[in-house]
Nucleic acid binder design. Structure first.
Lengths: 239, 239
DNA sequence: CCGGAAGTTTAGCCTAACCTAAAAAAAGAG
DNA sequence: CTCTTTTTTTAGGTTAGGCTAAACTTCCGG
């Protein structure tokens, strides 16, 4: 049974090694708010337990068992977030911390019961997909608003930001998963983006826009030319 | 912020020092499954933090802040148990352990939201009263079936047993809080009790009977004589 | 290809909670 | 009242998971 600390490391390494690269010691240390030296020590322990592969000076990546455990944790976290919002009335900006502490204490049965009550949800309140109990899980991504071409229309699918302030702000702008939007303008010099959302025009800073994943929609009657490449790319993997 | 270990000690000391006596080191050690020597060490730490008053060789009792904390924990535990049963479909024999680990991770806000969803329940699935968020809390008790006089009728109010086996057995016999029952016979030499419950006659061992708290009911038309003393005693405090 | 900056590991130290075994105090039996 | 048993405390040891500071790699600019 992994301890809380071990679980936190696994989750962190998982999310850092998304692009198949190894997670660096300092990146892990940063995320967890822990000194780098302590991380090295823990990586050695994790390697002994066979949860992590650690090549000194090059970083760590999860082994198969380590990844299985990490995915289980992510499932727990996301089901909990959804439950907190749907059943207990939390707002989406306040669920992260609560779920973070509960995920270490909850049993799989508890999580499965919550998922049942929720109707086996496919994603959490921020649009992050919820892994099933078993089986492979690959975290697919849509392109972000920050990298989309002007004129693209689409549906906001996921918000990759945990900062409560940012989330509250986005909710005010109606920028929540499921919302339709269109990128109208892009100010020069990495300036803010003008976006049409819910009948209104909004301005979104580039940084924030980079955390908004959008599924592009084929502009049915408009621009019948060459949007296909972009759209299909958006629907598949996109690191 | 008390650690899990500290919280467990506080809860244990609280429940052991019910009758105003101090909790002994070995009793605490037993409950927690910990060596006596370790308990002494922890009691010293708790005393330093002002949560416990520890007189060497005589035992420990909670200070006012310690008791406040313990009551908060009990509230969390019992609300969680109720929530697990009512919302997530657990049976009453399986909620204790799950609640025990969750109670350390749950925030007060989470608990309060659960209580709201449940309609501010007054007791947990075993009939144990749930303390309010604030204010004094005295754990009142009813007399147990084991000490009641033959012929007494009453309502089962609380089951003081955590053993899942026992709880499943009691549920089969319909011996759950709220059930009406009458003590019919008491076998000699501390033998089993014959009890009328839900139209059937059941036999209950004395040990088990001692964990069943019953609120006596005035036998309205029967035996109009001298049952009053017993009945009123049952409704008040009864350590 | 050399030297410093940045990143990583090692070494030594700390705390919370546990353990066991021995010493000390309290309680009960005769 | 004394002697033995039980209970409690003390003393010394362990493990997980942190920290800092120094030593070592790796990387990158010139």
């Amino acid at each position: 049974m992994p301890s809380m600390a071990v679980e936190d490391y696994l989750k962190t390494i998982y999310s850092l090694s998304a692009g198949a690269e190894a997670a660096s010691t300092s990146a892990i240390a940063d995320r967890l708010g822990i000194a780098a030296g302590s991380v090295t020590g823990m990586l050695k322990r994790l390697a002994e337990q066979g949860l992590v592969e650690h090549v000194p000076y090059y970083g760590a990546r999860l082994t198969a068992p380590g990844e299985r455990e990490a995915v289980r944790l992510i499932r727990r976290h996301r089901v909990l977030e959804m439950f907190l919002v749907q059943v207990l009335g939390y707002t989406w900006d306040r669920v992260h911390d609560e779920a973070d502490s509960l995920e270490h204490a909850a049993t799989d049965e508890l999580i499965d019961r919550m998922a049942t009550v929720l109707g086996e949800p496919a994603s959490d309140p921020h649009g992050a997909p919820i892994p099933a109990g078993e089986g492979r899980f690959v975290e697919a991504h849509f392109p972000t608003l920050g990298e989309m071409a002007v004129g693209t229309r689409g549906v906001l699918r996921r918000v990759q930001d945990e900062d409560p302030e940012a989330l509250r702000y986005l909710a005010e702008l109606e920028l929540v998963p499921g919302t339709e939007l269109e990128l109208l303008e892009r100010a020069p010099f990495n300036g803010p983006l003008k976006v049409q959302v819910g009948g209104r025009e909004r301005f979104v800073g580039l940084e924030l826009a980079r955390s908004l994943e959008v599924e592009a929609v084929d502009p049915v009657a408009r621009r019948p030319k060459k949007n296909k490449a972009k759209t299909s790319a958006g629907a598949t993997k996109h690191v």
